[in-house]
Every structure is written in structure tokens, then in C-alpha cells.
Design a protein around this nucleic acid. Sequence first.
DNA 1: TTGAAAGCGGTACCAT
DNA 2: ATGGTACCGCTTTCAA
Lengths: 339, 339
Amino acid sequence: MANIYQVAERAGVSLATVSRVINGKSKVAQRTKDRVEIAMQELGYRPNSIAQSLASATSNRVGILVSVLDGPFFSNMLASIETTLRDAGKHVIITAGHSDEAKEKEAIEFLISCRCDALILCIDSISDDYLIELSDRNVQFAVINHQIPQIAERCFIVDNEQGGYLATKSAIDKGHKQIGYISGPSYKEDARLRLRGHQRALEEAGIEFDADYVYCGDYHDSSGEAGFDYLQSLDKSCTAIVCGNDDMATGVIFAARRAGINMPQQLSVIGFDDLIFARYTYPSLTSVENPISDMGTMAAFWILQTVYKQSTGNKIENLFKTRVVVRDSLSEPIFINDM
Amino acid sequence: MANIYQVAERAGVSLATVSRVINGKSKVAQRTKDRVEIAMQELGYRPNSIAQSLASATSNRVGILVSVLDGPFFSNMLASIETTLRDAGKHVIITAGHSDEAKEKEAIEFLISCRCDALILCIDSISDDYLIELSDRNVQFAVINHQIPQIAERCFIVDNEQGGYLATKSAIDKGHKQIGYISGPSYKEDARLRLRGHQRALEEAGIEFDADYVYCGDYHDSSGEAGFDYLQSLDKSCTAIVCGNDDMATGVIFAARRAGINMPQQLSVIGFDDLIFARYTYPSLTSVENPISDMGTMAAFWILQTVYKQSTGNKIENLFKTRVVVRDSLSEPIFINDM
DNA sequence: TTGAAAGCGGTACCAT
DNA sequence: ATGGTACCGCTTTCAA
């Protein structure tokens, strides 16, 4: 493949001039420019991005770390990040961290050794301290789904408290009063915030919060099943169960069906994340939309502006609001029908 | 960050020697090697992969093109490709083609302009001719899910005919005799092959094939619903419906439930691909496993061996067998219970 | 076994 | 506006 020298020679100009027309920044006479462009055409010239990177000390690579590649959660986000960055001429290198601290660190080091100009990190095992250290090392990165006060401007998060609030409020608005909650693990901040939102919705409606009606799960469907069994064992049975994520909600649906409970008439179920399969469950799952994909796009914009100094014309938002996507699993509680 | 000169200086050797210990190929005296390694340690040296690429004319990048990034179909495959290649020190650049010929070509050109050493292509709109031309241009690539006779050794495909056969055979084995089939679009080779497998299973069981009981869909769930309606309108109603993919199978399940049909007692449904949501449908979907992830890994091995001349010790297989994953949507037909 | 030096294909500064 | 040229950090002959 032709290189810049051959283009220069054919166009009868110096390679510096060819470089100028490639980058389009500095002024080149229209005539010269045309000659160069024709020469590039004729030789089928394509700038060697590797040489460009070496000479400019900018790799034009953005590294992405997600905890799992093979799940429904991040794929939309990856798609939107890829689109945004490729349109800006950046290459995306994707790695998976497998929710393991050592592997996540290793993946980050891999991305750094790839000479990525910036990283987008969706981590769940790495400590805040490590990330702060990373920022002290002048590594440019954005964090998704994790709030770190010291580097708040590069964190992009969903309003988990609001999401938890909306989920429970949507049940209350339907007339539910006895509402169980299955939470994610309490060491996770998002789980705590979603639960707090749940509490706020109850209080606002004048329903007393009873900690007995909260089961602490682990975000996996099996804990949804266990949570359902637990909530069933209580004195007053719930007419609705709000879950910290969709996986646990499907666990509830499985367990409830196994227990012969009619959904949604006897039990409403609400999830969180609105994953792709929410519409395939039976009944289809009402869930809080997690705008993970928008957050990815925003992180990409932030990098384009902050790292590459490109003005994308987008205002950077760090906090993303949620909304409830209503499907069949939410309805009025049965005692209303009885009236 | 330190460069190779600084390491050489600190170790008191030439940069050529440092290069040798980095690459570990040529002979270096143990003493010298130790000195260099200590120097690298002390300076926290990491070879600049961009400079390595430029000097060696090997980018160590592998480009991946999938039709959609934001779906469940490719994510497992991406995960396994990423793992395999990263272990081999290669960088993975991922792009999406969005099932559009122009975009797919554009993505391929993008990957080529990234100087990828090799590509893994999961395409569905690009013509064979273009790929053959690509191979004539000496672009190194593997193709997944698409058989092209002229370049068969670089194509990795699932045995669609066998999959279609197994799907229908599993229904026959349960006692079904009136089996409807909802096919993917006939211009797609995989759809034709799956249908052919269906026919073979019928013939083998002595069941006459009746083209009236085949509905030609488009691989989307809406055509599954339409296909169900069509099959219901026929004289003899089916006790089982085999579908060309899982999306159409979920369409069948939706439509059948809407029609008040009890599954699986009155109707068994079988899909193809065994996507992640197959276990979330109700009843959970029996499906033919599509070893897309294994194919990705194999394509990666092929590239490692063919392009990078690394012997991975893996025997390259181009054709992948399927198996049926049995879940609740398949059972004996009701007339057996009646006997 | 080791070193010297010529690239790899660009960028960017300094002249003109 | 254009050209000359010194890098960028490494690989890879060729000699010693």
C-alpha cells in the first residue's frame, strides 16, 4: 500500500504538504490540495494510523472495560459507545473484567499498555482508591455506574434512588399497600440507593416501612426465588414485590408460578434495568429503565471533549433519570377487584 | 514513560539488545538479560505497542465485525473471542454492521484502515463476491456463519441442516406427527438448510412432507405470530411447531397464548439458537443450541495459527454440530395422553 | 553475543 | 502556502 512519500512524489509536493491535506487543519492552496487528493485517489492511499499514532503520541484508541461481555446488560451500551466513537474516528478496544478485582486490574493495565488515550470503565470489584490512584497517574477515564466523589465529573450514573422510588410508587399508584422489596447486596451502593427510594415512596404515601418486608438478595435470580419464599412466609402476604434488578424479578416470577400464584392478579412484580428479556417473561415484566446506553454515549462524548478537545456540542450530564416501563406484571391488587 | 533508550542506557547495553530481550527470540547472554530486566523493572518500562507495530508491520490487532452489537446473539461469541485473543496478546477492535450492506462494507474498510492483521466477519448482507475479492486483496479474514466454497477453509459454520433435523426429530421422538414449520427467509442459506433438515427428519420417520405446513417467515417474532395464525387456519392443526430461530418461536408462544392454547400440552414449540432468553419464556423454550461462541473461538485459533504462525495446538474444525436443549415447551402431544 | 544504523510512515516545528 | 527535517519508539539486518 502506498505511503505518504509516494503520494508526495506523484503530486509533486513535499510530504509535509500531503500531511497537511490529510489533517485538513493548516491552510493549503486549493490547487495543491486538489493535486494531492488526486494522487491519493490514484494510489488508493490510506494514512497509516499506526504511524500517525506514533508520531502524534495519540493512539486514537479508547479502551472499554465491562464486567461481562456475554450478557444482555452491557451490549446496548457497547453498541452506542462504538457508534459514537467510530464516528469520531476512534478505535474501540473492548475487554471484560469478569467481576473479579484482579482481572479487572489486569484488564485496565492491558488497556493502558495498548496506549489507549482514554478508558471507559464499568467495574464492580475495583476499589475507589485504585481509581483515584489511576486518576493521579494521569490516566484519562470515565466511570459508568459508580459514583466517586473525588472524581465526580468523570462518573456517569443512573439515579438509583429515583429508580427505586418510581418502582414502588408505580405499585402504590395502582393501589398496592403491602409491598415487599427484594434488594441487591447491601455492600453495593446502587442496591442501597434503590432501597432508599423504595422507602421514600412508602413514606410519601403514608405507608409505614417495615424492615421485615425487605429481603436482601444478591442480584441473581436464585435470590429472587428465595426472597419470594421468605416474603410468603410472613404474616401478611404482599400484593406486590419490587426487586432491585430484573434477574431477581424473574426469580420471583418463577417461584410464584411454582407456588400456583396467579400473576399479576394475585401478585405484581416490578424489576429494575429493563433488560431485553423483560418482554419475554410471563407475565412480561414491568421494570425501571436503566439508561445504561445513554450513559455510555455520554461518557464517550465526555472523552471526545475532554481528552480529544473535540466540541461535540453536547452538554455533559452525569446523573441519569429513570422511568418505569409498564408491562403485564403490574396491575391493581386483587382486593380492589373484590370491592 | 520510559522508552527503550533509557532502558538500554541504564542497563549499559545497546537498544538492540533490549529489543532482543523484549522479544525473547534471539539469544542474549543470561547476565545481560538479567541486567536489562532489572533496568526495565526499575523504570517501569512497557514496550510501546504502537512503535512495535510500526517497526514490525504487524499491528497485533484483530478486527471483529458483527451485524449487531446490541443483541444477545453475538455477545457470547465476542466474549470468547476477546478472551482467546487477549491471552495471545492481540487487541480486539469491534465494529457493528447493522445488517446493512453499505455499513458492513464501511466497517470492513474501517477495520482495514485500522491496520488489523486479520478480521473475523459475521456478516449477513455482504455478497460472497465481495469476500472473495477481499481474499484476493490478501486481506486475512475468517467468516462465521457463512459458507463460501471458494474460501471454505476460512469459513466456520454451524451444521444448519443437522440442527433442523434434530429439532424436528426431537418432536417426532415425543410422538408428534403433525408438525408445522416456520422458516426463516428463503434467500438465506441457513434458513433453507434448517428446513431441509426438517424435511429429512420427517422422511426418515415416514411422515409425508406437506409444503402447506411450512410458513416462510423473516426471523422476527412478528412473523412467528403470523406463522402461528397461518398454521392454525389449516385443516389439521399442528401439535408441534418447529421454528427457524428463537425469535419466531417466541412469536409463536405469544400468539398461541393469546389464542388460549395450553402449552406444551396442546402445542409444543421448538426454536433454534438457544438464546439467553429461551429459559425466560413461558413455557421455557426448547431450542437447538447454536455453538456460535465455539465458532468464534475456533476462528480466533485459526487466525492465531494462520496469520500469526502461533501453534495453539488446536485442530481446526470448520463445521460445528448442534444439539437440542430440551425445556418445557416440548412434551408429548395430547392425543397420546388420550389413549 | 552484541552494537550500529537504516528504516517503518507519519507529525510538527522552523524556515523560506 | 510550502518545503526541509528532526523526531516518535521500536525492529531488523549487517558487521564486528
